[in-house]
């Protein structure tokens, strides 16, 4: 009896609720990843005047499922000279970093998995875990290309966190909070009240609008670098490094890297939505506002930014390592400091 009691003590009343809350983002993430892969395939095809996948299902909409099935079927190779524990661990750590961010992302005012006060800070903190996974994978592969890719990736992600953080910090200044729910509530009441247009306020906020616009752009650019997307995809730059840090991975482990990349894309798009583009708020004030619409607006806006990332990828060439550093340290950082300065000034005056 005692042992059973012990188990019951371990399981609190909300146990089921916790499981549900944990799994809902995962289910969402899987559905989203399939949609995003389809989007990537189709948008790239249409941009290049191709039809894209057409065979699996009507207009090829089942293609992502076919790809996942293919990846599961593939042989899972581990190089002989690889450091096996680290090699096997790396994909999971990368995915964990991406998935942990979902703990604080508010899909709706009624569905916030964890309403902690330092939500923004938390996202940035767990987002950096991915670096460890990349270095682990790159080093453990025992491949020169992987190592070069991992080294580049570390330098890149660490440098681009600073301008990104400056952009987010100015939102924290405007909202006076790091809590994602409070940031969302602060942007209520139509498109003009979003932080990309300076947040709540009358016409005297007009002079701060350019700075918030630039900051949202800076966050978009640095988020591209953090997710290793073109034009900042040098860690995996396929023309030089074959596939960068995941050269040696195949099958399901490669799928984890792939999955994590798409999950990361959604996380940064969601953060951009929450911080600058009103989160769950409708652009039309109280019109189309409510718990159901919350999810619609939030997911819709995030998807839009995911599509922008895909669109950019199929338009631009990639930068070189030193140029990437130049853009990060000498362009984005000074601009974000200037903008941050003016936004703080604006906040002081009001």
């Amino acid at each position: 009896m005692e042992t059973i009691n012990f188990v019951y003590n371990l399981i609190p009343d909300q146990f089921i609720a916790i499981i549900v809350i944990c799994t809902i983002p995962l289910i969402f993430l899987i559905v989203y990843a399939l949609l995003a892969i389809l989007g990537e395939l189709k948008i790239s095809a249409w941009i290049q005047e191709r039809l894209g996948p057409m065979r699996t299902g009507p207009w090829g909409i089942l293609q992502p499922i076919a790809e996942v099935v293919k990846l599961i079927q593939k042989e899972d190779l581990t190089p002989d000279t690889a450091n096996k524990p680290l090699f096997n661990l790396a994909p999971f750590i990368i995915f964990m970093g991406a998935y942990a961010s979902f703990a604080v992302i508010p899909f709706s005012r009624y569905f916030i998995p964890s309403d902690i006060n330092i939500g923004l800070f938390y996202i940035f903190a767990v987002g950096s875990i991915a670096v460890i996974g990349i270095v682990m994978g790159g080093w453990a592969s025992n491949n020169k290309y992987s190592l070069l890719g991992a080294m580049r990736s570390v330098a890149q992600i660490i440098s681009y966190e600073i301008p990104g953080a400056m952009a987010i910090l100015s939102v924290a200044v405007l909202a006076s909070s790091l809590n994602l729910e409070k940031i969302n509530i602060a942007q209520e009441g139509g498109i003009w009240n979003w932080f990309v247009f300076g947040g709540q306020g009358s016409w005297d906020k007009l002079w701060v609008v350019p700075f918030t616009l630039i900051l949202s752009l800076i966050y978009l650019i640095s988020s591209l670098a953090e997710t290793n997307r073109t034009p900042f995809d040098i860690p995996e730059g396929e023309s030089e490094l074959v596939a960068g840090y995941h050269t040696e991975y195949s099958g399901m482990k490669f799928a984890m890297f792939f999955f994590a990349e798409y999950a990361n894309m959604f996380v940064v798009a969601a953060v951009l939505t929450i911080t600058f583009f009103g989160g769950w708020n409708s652009p039309f004030g109280n019109f189309m506002q409510g718990p159901g619409w919350d999810v619609f607006w939030f997911v819709g806006k995030s998807f839009f930014f995911v599509i922008v990332q895909i669109w950019l990828r199929w338009t631009l060439p990639r930068l070189r390592v030193d140029q990437l550093m130049y853009v990060g340290w000498k362009v984005l950082l000074p601009f974000s400091f200037i903008c941050f300065l003016f936004i703080s000034l604006f906040r002081m005056i009001n």
Binding site: S44, I47, Q48, E49, R50, T230, P231, D233, G237, S239, W314, T315, L316, P317, R318
Partner: peptide, 16 residues
């Protein structure tokens, strides 16, 4: 050459 620089789309426009 564009492909080496990472630009995939011009490659396919030329091939068309």
């Amino acid at each position: 050459f564009g492909l080496d620089a990472g630009a995939f789309t011009p490659f396919l426009y030329f091939f068309r």
